[in-house]
Design a protein around this nucleic acid. Structure first.
Ligand code: FES
Ligand code: FES
Lengths: 159, 159
DNA sequence: TCAATTCATTACTTTTTAGTCAAGATTGAG
DNA sequence: CTCAATCTTGACTAAAAAGTAATGAATTGA
């Protein structure tokens, strides 16, 4: 269970844009430098994010990328869904071994656990916006734990 | 954020062994058939799990694999740690782009989120035993949600 | 003993993911 | 208009993960 390179770097690039004063934009070399990746790689990531509607771009001198929507309106689960295709809905089509379909047809004790795990992650991500990732480590860490702390699936107790 | 093939199939093979009546064992072809993977692949997985101490094996006719410990004593996070190396503790060494180290030295808003996500998963897995994955889909699903429901990180409220 | 069965280990091949390159298109400045 | 800066796009290359093959070693039973 790990995050892919595309998710990691794509997310980082978006945070760089979210970090920007309103009206400004970043070029590929600028993004690349700030994240320590190559400009070519940044280009590919921004292309994906552009296609998905998270960023807009302008060409030519003074061109660059900027967020297409307000950062506090973009939730991380939307981003992750674009950067790494959704496996939650197709688990049994993805891990088929040498067969065409999962062998545990119908009754399966694995699926609820794996799918449940992915749901937990999805759930956690859907509570965080891009805007909330801007800031220093301490602030973001506090935000994360505060949000996840509220993530209770238990019913309120009666007193 | 997805589970790797090794995690998926390794876990499945262990569940097959956990499913077994006490004293019995499964050969590689048997495991392979039950999981719809090749015997060679099953062999590699079982080799890993054997090295890690989750299963024991006997050779020769009537040989096979069986759990080295009681299934209700094996937690999923231990298994996953063996099947897919731990990324939780080394995030900034893994995604370094073209540099040697992460660029956001010291103060980073990404790390707490990524690390936090992995912690959530680790946490969820550490609450489930292999024994709890034996059973039909409905039972396991109920077990999973019941356990995760209790997974609250919020302090008890004062009244 | 000897042959069949089974695990053990390492090397190899294939597939997938990650990352790079190069040619093209658009924009703005002078 | 022309040029340099910049994004766009698809093909290409490299690296990592997944899966296969082959050889060797232990065990059992005839
Ligand atoms: S994992 Fe797909 S049916 Fe069990
Ligand atoms: S992700 Fe490593 S320092 Fe930010």
């Amino acid at each position: 269970m790990k995050i892919s390179a595309q998710e990691e770097y794509g997310l980082r690039c978006l945070v760089q844009l979210a970090n920007l004063p309103s009206g400004e934009s970043l070029t590929l070399p600028q993004i690349a430098e700030r994240e320590g990746i190559s400009a070519a790689n940044a280009g590919k990531l921004m292309w994906l994010l552009n296609k998905a509607g998270f960023v807009n771009s302008t060409r030519g001198t003074k061109g660059g990328y900027f967020l297409a929507r307000p950062a506090d309106d973009i939730y991380l689960n939307e981003i992750i869904k674009v950067l790494d295709e959704d496996v939650l809905s197709s688990h049994c089509d993805s891990y088929t071994g040498v067969m065409d379909k999962c062998v545990h047809t119908g009754d399966c004790g694995i699926r609820p656990v794996i799918v449940g795990l992915h749901e937990i992650v999805e759930n956690a991500l859907s509570r965080i916006t891009l805007a909330q990732m801007v800031g220093n480590e301490k602030t973001v860490d506090a935000m994360f734990h505060s949000i996840q702390g509220i993530n209770r699936t238990i019913e309120p107790q009666r007193v």
